[in-house]
Simulated scan of single mutants.
Amino acid sequence: MSEQTRAETVLADAVRRSLDGCLRAPAFRRSPKLAAFLGYIVEEELAGRGETIKAYTIATQALGRADSFDPSNDPSVRVEAGRLRRVLDEVYADEGRALPVRILVPVGAYRPSFESQSAEIPSREAVSRESTIEEVLPRGEAARGLPGPAAVPARIPAPPALRPSPRAGSPLFENRGQAVLALLLVLIAFLLTIEIGLQIYIITQT
């Protein structure tokens, strides 16, 4: 019985890992009494002493009751067993789904039974492969196994436009306004030259 549990060929090591996982759950952390109840009955069953699990032994060895405890007059163990079943259901509906063994306390009894859980945690390799597929395919298409669009390479930004260098034969001025301004400057320079020439002529004649 130390290597296998009652009713199923479940390894005791897997049962203890599941027990530890349950006791770490918030529901059991909030209730040390229920944690002691569960730990006691599981360890007794694994040790081959399942037949001795009774209301009296649970009360005196797990719940801290006195040796004078009388289960026929005190229903506290039955009440705690009911709470224990509800908390186990709560744990296995959440974080306990990842545990290898489900611990059960049948109604009307205190001896636990154990069931291997078929749900398995995906391996790291499988998770990595699924993540890689979802990066390329939309989630719906990846689930249906449909090919998705080919990966589009990142767009390389175009280099800034370069100012074209003047080529032979290109117009000297880019627009008419520049041409008119240049013509006015030439005309002003011509008039100034004439005026200076006249001034020089007048000075030389006097």
Rank of each mutant, 00 (worst) to 15 (best):
Q61E: 08
Q61S: 11
G64L: 01
R65V: 03
A66H: 15
A66I: 09
A66K: 15
D67H: 14
S68D: 14
F69Q: 02
F69L: 02
D70E: 08
P71A: 04
S72P: 07
D74N: 11
P75K: 00
V77M: 03
R78C: 04
R78S: 08
V79R: 13
V79N: 12
E80Q: 09
E80W: 09
E80I: 06
A81D: 04
A81C: 06
G82P: 02
G82N: 00
R85W: 00
R85H: 02
R85C: 01
R86Q: 05
V87G: 00
V87F: 02
V91W: 00
A93K: 00
D94F: 06
D94Q: 07
D94C: 05
D94P: 05
E95W: 08
E95I: 12
A98G: 03
R102Q: 04
R102F: 04
R102I: 05
I103D: 02
I103M: 01
I103H: 00
P106K: 02
V107M: 14
Y110D: 00
R111S: 13
P112S: 04
P112D: 05
F114K: 03
E115Q: 11
S116I: 08
Q117Y: 02
S118K: 14
S118G: 11
S118W: 09
A119K: 13
A119Y: 12
E120A: 14
E120L: 15
I121K: 10
P122R: 10
R124G: 13
V127M: 07
S131I: 10
S131R: 15
T132S: 09
E134C: 13
E134I: 12
V136R: 11
V136W: 06
L137T: 14
L137N: 14
P138W: 08
P138F: 08
G140M: 08
G140F: 10
E141L: 12
A143Y: 05
A143V: 05
R144M: 11
G145D: 09
L146Q: 12
P147F: 09
P149D: 15
A151K: 07
V152L: 10
P153R: 02
R155L: 12
I156T: 03
A158N: 02
P159L: 00
P159T: 00
P160Y: 02
A161F: 09
L162Y: 11
P164R: 06
S165D: 15
S165R: 10
A168M: 15
A168V: 10
G169T: 05
S170P: 06
L172C: 13
F173R: 03
E174F: 07
E174G: 14
E174A: 12
R176F: 05
R176M: 06
R176T: 11
G177Y: 05
Q178T: 06
Q178A: 11
A179G: 09
A179T: 07
A179I: 06
L183S: 14
L184V: 14
L184R: 11
L185E: 15
V186C: 07
V186L: 14
L187I: 12
I188M: 08
A189Q: 11
F190I: 13
F190M: 12
L191S: 15
L192E: 08
T193Q: 12
T193F: 15
I194A: 02
G197E: 01
L198N: 13
Q199A: 15
I202N: 12
